[in-house]
C-alpha cells in the first residue's frame, strides 16, 4: 500500500516537441536529458516525452501548453508570433551572428524583454537554445542579395520571407515536408532553414550550393524549452530545483551540440558534393540593409516597441 501511495504522489508531466524521437536529434536529446535527470533526482517527478509532434501538432504546442494539454515543450518561439508579435524578433535575419554571440544575447536587455513577454503569457523558460541555419540553392551560391534576383524561394519564417522578397526573390509558401519534392521538380529553387532540417530532410540531394552559418550567419532561431507556469507552480520546492538543475545541464549540452549540428551540416553537404560557402561580414551587412527596409521595418510597425527591440539586439557585441 505504501508503494502504491508513493506512485500516486508522483507527478507526471507531458513534454512535447516536433523532432524525431530516439534517433539522436539534439533537440530531442535535450528534452530526454531533462526527463532522465529529473527521474534520477528521485523527487517524485516523471516527464513523459512525446516526440515527433505525436501528441499535438508543432504549431499548436504553445496553445496546448497554455490549455494544459502539455506541460513542457521545446518550441520555436516564432510559431507563436501570431499571438505575440514581439516573438517574431526571435527568428529575425541578421540579429544573431554566431553561437558565441547567441550566448551573449541570452543575457542582454533584448532577451530580457522577450522573456518578460513569455512570462506574462503564463510560461516559464526552462532552458535557452539558439539554432543556426543557412541558405541553400539549386543554382548559384547565395552570398549577396543580388544572387537571389528572380529566384523562387521557400522560407521557414515570415521575417525571412520578407527579406527574400525585398532582395527580389519570389516567395512561395509550401509546407516543410513538401520542400524536398518542390526543389526536385523546380517548384522552388532556393530555401532557408535550420542546419538540422537541411540534413534531416536530405536537401543535399537536391541543392547545388549551401551557405553555411559560419561566423557571420544571418539565420538564427530561438527555440527554448518552455513550461506552463501553472504546471510549474504546482511542483514542490524540491521538484522545481531538480527540474531547473536538469534544464541547466540540458542548456549547456545543447550549446555545445548546436555547434556540432553546423559541423555535421557542412560535412554532410560536402560529402554529397554540394558546394559550401559562408558569408563575409560585408555580405551579411548587405543583407541586413535589405532587412532594415523590409522585415525590421514591418516588425517595427506591428510591434509597439519593435524598433527598440531590434536596436537592442543589434547593440549586442
Amino acid at each position: 500500500l505504501a508503494a502504491f501511495g508513493a506512485a500516486e504522489a508522483a507527478t507526471t508531466l507531458k513534454a512535447s516537441h516536433q523532432f524525431p524521437g530516439g534517433k539522436g536529434d539534439v533537440r530531442d536529446e535535450m528534452v530526454q536529458m531533462i526527463a532522465r535527470e529529473v527521474a534520477a533526482a528521485d523527487v517524485g517527478l516523471e516527464i513523459r516525452v512525446y516526440p515527433g509532434a505525436s501528441l499535438v501538432k508543432a504549431k499548436e504546442q504553445w496553445q496546448a501548453m497554455l490549455k494544459g494539454q502539455i506541460d513542457i515543450t521545446s518550441f520555436p518561439l516564432d510559431y507563436a508570433s501570431g499571438r505575440h508579435a514581439a516573438f517574431g524578433a526571435t527568428l529575425m535575419p541578421g540579429l544573431v551572428k554566431n553561437h558565441a554571440h547567441a550566448r551573449r544575447l541570452n543575457e542582454s536587455p533584448f532577451m530580457a524583454e522577450i522573456k518578460k513577454e513569455i512570462e506574462e503569457a503564463g510560461v516559464v523558460v526552462l532552458a535557452d537554445a539558439w539554432l543556426a541555419g543557412g541558405f541553400g540553392s539549386k543554382d548559384k551560391c547565395i552570398l549577396e542579395p543580388d544572387d537571389v534576383q528572380g529566384l523562387k524561394a521557400r522560407s521557414a519564417g515570415a521575417t525571412f520571407a520578407e527579406m527574400w522578397a525585398g532582395a527580389g526573390a519570389s516567395i512561395i509558401n509550401i509546407p516543410s515536408n513538401e520542400v524536398y519534392s518542390a526543389l526536385q521538380t523546380g517548384v522552388a529553387e532556393a530555401t532557408d532553414t535550420s542546419s538540422g532540417s537541411f540534413v534531416s530532410f536530405r536537401l543535399y540531394e537536391q541543392l547545388k550550393c549551401l551557405t553555411a552559418p559560419g561566423e557571420n550567419a544571418l539565420w538564427f532561431m530561438y527555440e527554448p524549452v518552455l513550461m506552463s507556469k501553472r504546471s510549474f507552480d504546482r511542483l514542490d520546492e524540491k521538484q522545481r530545483e531538480a527540474l531547473m538543475e536538469a534544464a541547466k545541464k540540458a542548456e549547456d549540452y545543447f550549446a555545445e551540440e548546436s555547434r556540432k549540428l553546423d559541423e555535421e551540416l557542412v560535412a554532410t553537404f560536402e560529402k554529397a558534393g554540394v558546394e559550401v560557402v559562408t558569408m563575409t561580414p560585408e555580405q551579411a551587412e548587405m543583407w541586413r540593409e535589405v532587412a532594415r527596409r523590409t522585415s525590421y521595418k514591418s516588425f517595427a510597425e506591428q510591434v509597439p516597441n519593435g524598433q527598440e527591440l531590434i536596436d537592442m539586439a543589434l547593440e549586442v557585441e
Binding site: 499548436e60 496553445q63 496546448a64 490549455k67 494544459g68
Partner: peptide, 13 residues
C-alpha cells in the same frame, strides 16, 4: 482543461 482544447484540436487537425 483537456476538454476545452477539443475545438483547437479539431480545427488544427
Amino acid at each position: 482543461y483537456g476538454v476545452m482544447a477539443t475545438a483547437d484540436t479539431l480545427f488544427a487537425g
